[in-house]
Amino acid sequence: MNTFEPFESRYRPLKSNYCDNPVLVIDTDATQSDLLNAAEQRMRAATDLLETLYCLCFKQADVKDIPNIINALYLLMQDGCDLLEVAKQQIK
C-alpha cells in the first residue's frame, strides 16, 4: 500500500528531465483541478498521437522516425503520470 509522503519542496522535478539540474517542474501547490487538467492534456495528446499512428500505413513510415515518436510519447505520458501523482497526493 502506498503511504503518504509529503513533498520535500514546493517544486517537484519531472521524471522526464534529462539533466541533474531540472528545468521543468511541477508546482505542488497548484490546485488539484489545474494538475488534473495538465495531466489530461498530455495524456490526451499521447492518445491522439497513438490513434494517428494506428490509422497510418506503416509501409510509408521511415524507420528513423520511430525513436522520435517513442520519445514524444514517453515525454507526454511520463509528465502526465507525474502530474497525476502530485494530484493524487493532494487527496490524502
Rank of each mutant, 00 (worst) to 15 (best):
P13S: 10
S16G: 06
D79P: 03
L75Y: 01
D79S: 12
V86A: 06
D34F: 02
Y74E: 14
Q41E: 11
D65I: 10
C57D: 12
L56T: 04
K15Y: 01
D48C: 08
A46H: 01
Y54T: 14
I66F: 05
D62W: 04
K64Q: 11
Q32T: 13
L35W: 00
L76N: 06
M77V: 03
M43L: 13
D79H: 12
D20C: 11
P6Y: 03
K64L: 10
I26G: 03
D29E: 09
D27F: 04
I69F: 03
A38N: 04
I91L: 12
Y54G: 13
D62A: 09
I69C: 11
S9M: 13
V63I: 04
R12Q: 15
L50M: 06
N37C: 12
Y18T: 12
A39M: 09
T52H: 05
P22M: 14
R42A: 11
I69R: 08
A45W: 00
T47Q: 06
S33D: 07
N17S: 06
M77H: 07
S16F: 05
N17V: 07
K64H: 12
I26S: 04
D82E: 09
T28F: 04
K15L: 11
L36G: 02
P22H: 15
Q78H: 07
Y54M: 15
K15A: 13
L76T: 02
N71T: 11
D27T: 02
D79L: 12
I70S: 11
T3W: 02
T52K: 09
I70D: 10
Q41I: 13
L50S: 02
S33H: 08
